[in-house]
């Protein structure tokens, strides 16, 4: 519920993510309160239908100027709020599927996932889909299926782009953010391999920690003198 205050603190977190992405794909193994992708993914709006009357929260519905939210009102709420409303017992609101995960959109992804601009549908398409499935919607298995199949089909393209071009492929803008991390990691390896093949090996650099240690020792010695 209080995710938003965190965004201003994200500098440190992002650095951590950047550091860790080298070998392990840094993402939350949900739930992870401090994961930035998670916070951003759960900003996406989902349609909610209220099942009980909520006093004094009428301002959430931009279409009405009543003081309370009546039973049966349909409002689009961010996912982080909707999930809490849904998991209360008894549930305060029922959460529907956003249109990008409805059957018509799923059919598009089933037909040819490679050409779809996932970034336009939702920047954190997979993350959002995964979060959505945790609400045990009756179409969840179907959604997971589509997510997995789309990723598998799109992977070939990511592999090709990562290993075969030195410049960033303009079409990579169509990748969802998780795919982008994979693509970037692959591209770094691809270009360093290419460089090695054409120009031969370079000097191996000492790890950052070792260098810092040396510097510290030097300054300590300077201080002693």
């Amino acid at each position: 519920m209080f995710c938003h205050g965190l965004i201003s603190l994200d500098g440190g977190c992002q650095q951590l993510c950047h550091h860790r992405k080298i070998m392990s794909l840094c993402h939350s193994y949900v739930p992870n309160y401090f994961s930035i992708p998670d916070i951003l993914a759960t900003q996406e709006k989902v349609p909610c239908t209220f099942e009980v009357q909520v006093k004094h929260l009428g301002f959430l519905d931009p279409g009405s100027d009543k003081r309370d939210i009546e039973v049966g009102t349909n409002i689009e709420l961010p996912f982080w709020m909707a999930s809490v409303l849904k998991t209360q017992r008894p549930a305060i609101a029922d959460v529907g599927l956003p249109k990008i995960f409805k059957e018509s959109y799923r059919d598009i992804l089933k037909a040819d996932p490679v050409v779809v601009d996932l970034h336009k549908l939702a920047p954190y398409f997979y993350e959002f889909g995964m979060s959505l499935c945790m609400l045990n919607h009756r179409e969840s298995p179907e959604i997971v299926n589509v997510l997995v199949e789309s990723f598998k089909q799109r992977f070939r393209k990511i592999l090709d782009w990562a290993q075969h071009s030195n410049i960033e492929v303009p079409e990579s803008k169509k990748l969802d953010n998780a795919e982008k991390i994979i693509y970037q990691a692959g591209r770094e390896v691809g270009s360093s391999l290419h460089l090695w093949l054409t120009e031969g090996g370079s000097l191996i650099m000492a790890a950052g920690m070792v260098m810092q240690h040396k510097k510290m020792k030097l300054t300590q010695r300077d201080l002693l003198q």
């Binding site: 499935c133 969840s140 997971v144 994979i182």
Partner: peptide, 18 residues
Amino acid sequence: RPLLPHALDFIDRLNKAS
């Protein structure tokens, strides 16, 4: 590497969501 391990990792996560 790290393309393949990352991809497998990701697929595993997607599957776990179900």
